Amino acid sequence: MTASPSAPQRGFPPAEYAARTTRAQGIMRDHAFDALVLTTPHNIRYFTGFDSQFWESPTRPWFVVVPAAGEPVAVIPEIGAPQMALTWLSDIRSWPAPRPADDGTSLLVGALGDLPRRFGRVGFELGREQSLRMPVTQFLDLRQRLPGLALDDGGACIWAIRMVKTEAEIDRIRHICGIASDAYDRVPDLVGAGMTDREAARALRIELARLGADATPFLPAVSGPGGVPQIVCGPGDRVLEPGDILFFDTGSTFDGYFCDFDRNYAIGAPGDAVRRAHEAMWRATEAGIAAAHPGATTDDLHRAMSAVIEQAGSIGNSVGRLGHGLGMQLTEPPSHMPGDGTVLEAGMVITIEPGMEYAPGRMIVHEENIVIRPGGAELLTRRAPRDLPVL
């Protein structure tokens, strides 16, 4: 089955990437960087549109340099040059990788050495929720070969660029949220007592693909009597029985963008305690959505949800936060937690994710995806039913 007629067209026009780059260059000036050097799949794709399953191979480093002015420069292995030439970039420099003695280092030194220096600083993916997809020894060698140029942490700058989404990005997240919402609505027809968690997850994964999801990299399926003990591992081979709660969480993608939201189901009639906990988390989600507007902080969202959770008699929450950013990655900054302090802006896409342990070893978590608009939150997911669904 192909994607629905309402699906966004795959890929972005050159104007989208040019606008992202221009906006990024303004933010780079604010952070005093002459350039950013990007090495990870998501950041490279964000600026170029280049995507490949070959990212599964860690053998070769890849680089994209975003200068303070002008188009980005790709410094990449020859094996990827033909596909990169189909993107909007015109300056593509390549070498016959892998070549451990000089795996693109000289080409990257040349690209950075040619740049005008206003601040004498280049940002790399060294900070919060970033990783450097190149050997550390190669990075240290770059520092030695670029005297007078500081290679610093560009993580905060990169997230300032990516946290606010364009309308085209939001369209893709909305679309995959719709696919996953439709798939969750089909769960009563797909899953029931006697199946294992693994079989239930397989049925949901197939439905997601049938409805048009490109991939489902994240799909915990966890069950337990009256609640679940954790929400990040599985599925296993536990058999669903009457009295169980089944928890699904899906991170599915469309055209490079994720949804991330969960749903809970009762196998047979649920007990009073789990019904009360489910109702409390539904109300906590409402509180989080209501608090999400431009100018509010992630701390404000945490406080709004926590007030409901505490009133419900929570005995713990091992998750550590009550939601996060969402986009090209399953989880992105910010984090809804005390001290994060991120000020919400229109265009940010975030999750609202209250959870509580209401009895030892029994958790209930709710999650929805929203985009911040000038007037408040726009729901991207189809809101979970207030009453716990029964399978």
Results as ranks from 00 to 15, higher is better:
residue 117 R to Y: 06
residue 120 G to T: 03
residue 282 W to D: 06
residue 352 I to Q: 13
residue 2 T to W: 14
residue 136 V to N: 11
residue 43 N to F: 07
residue 361 G to K: 14
residue 298 T to L: 04
residue 60 R to D: 09
residue 124 F to V: 02
residue 98 P to H: 12
residue 294 P to F: 04
residue 86 L to G: 11
residue 52 S to A: 04
residue 18 A to L: 15
residue 235 P to K: 07
residue 390 V to F: 08
residue 299 D to N: 10
residue 181 S to I: 08
residue 226 G to C: 00
residue 162 R to A: 00
residue 285 T to E: 13
residue 359 A to Y: 12
residue 13 P to M: 03
residue 347 G to S: 13
residue 379 L to M: 14
residue 313 G to Q: 08
residue 193 A to N: 02
residue 208 L to A: 09
residue 173 I to Y: 10
residue 378 E to S: 00
residue 333 P to I: 04
residue 200 A to F: 05
residue 67 P to Q: 10
residue 153 D to G: 02
residue 129 E to T: 05
residue 238 R to N: 08
residue 92 I to L: 13
residue 257 Y to T: 02
residue 107 L to G: 07
residue 162 R to C: 00
residue 224 G to S: 03
residue 19 A to F: 06
residue 221 A to N: 11
residue 320 G to T: 01
residue 87 T to G: 10
residue 302 H to I: 00
residue 351 T to E: 06
residue 227 G to C: 03
residue 355 G to H: 06
residue 127 G to V: 03
residue 50 F to Y: 15
residue 365 V to S: 05
residue 214 D to L: 01
residue 167 E to G: 00
residue 219 L to A: 07
residue 372 I to H: 07
residue 141 D to P: 02
residue 3 A to Q: 14
residue 302 H to S: 06
residue 172 R to H: 09
residue 91 D to N: 13
residue 81 A to R: 15
residue 306 S to A: 07
residue 79 I to H: 15
residue 155 G to Q: 06
residue 355 G to F: 09
residue 239 V to Q: 15
residue 74 A to Q: 11
residue 387 D to S: 12
residue 208 L to F: 12
residue 328 M to L: 14
residue 140 L to G: 05
residue 31 H to N: 08
residue 113 G to A: 08
residue 74 A to S: 04
residue 237 D to P: 02
residue 186 R to G: 03
residue 343 V to K: 12
residue 121 R to Y: 05
residue 25 Q to C: 01
residue 330 L to M: 12
residue 60 R to Q: 09
residue 320 G to Q: 08
residue 166 T to Q: 11
residue 140 L to C: 09
residue 125 E to W: 07
residue 377 A to R: 10
residue 48 T to Q: 06
residue 294 P to D: 04
residue 115 L to G: 03
residue 210 R to C: 04
residue 51 D to I: 04
residue 127 G to S: 01
residue 319 V to L: 15
residue 64 V to L: 07
residue 38 L to P: 09
residue 176 I to V: 15
residue 331 T to W: 10
residue 303 R to Q: 09
residue 128 R to A: 01
residue 148 G to W: 13
residue 382 R to D: 09
residue 93 R to K: 14
residue 48 T to P: 01
residue 320 G to N: 07
residue 179 I to K: 11
residue 326 L to Q: 11
residue 153 D to V: 03
residue 162 R to N: 07
residue 170 I to A: 07
residue 345 E to M: 05
residue 329 Q to C: 01
residue 222 V to D: 12
residue 85 A to S: 15
residue 385 P to I: 02
residue 310 E to Y: 12
residue 389 P to V: 00
residue 195 M to Y: 05
residue 78 E to C: 03
residue 132 L to F: 12
residue 293 H to E: 13
residue 281 M to D: 07
residue 328 M to N: 06
residue 257 Y to E: 09
residue 287 A to I: 08
residue 113 G to Q: 09
residue 366 H to N: 08
residue 278 H to N: 10
residue 189 D to M: 05
residue 202 R to T: 02
residue 164 V to Y: 13
residue 12 F to C: 10
residue 19 A to S: 14
residue 265 Y to H: 08
residue 347 G to C: 07
residue 372 I to C: 02
residue 68 A to S: 14
residue 271 G to H: 04
residue 322 L to Q: 13
residue 85 A to K: 15
residue 70 G to H: 13
residue 390 V to W: 14
residue 108 L to W: 10
residue 189 D to P: 01
residue 208 L to M: 15
residue 321 R to F: 10
residue 123 G to D: 09
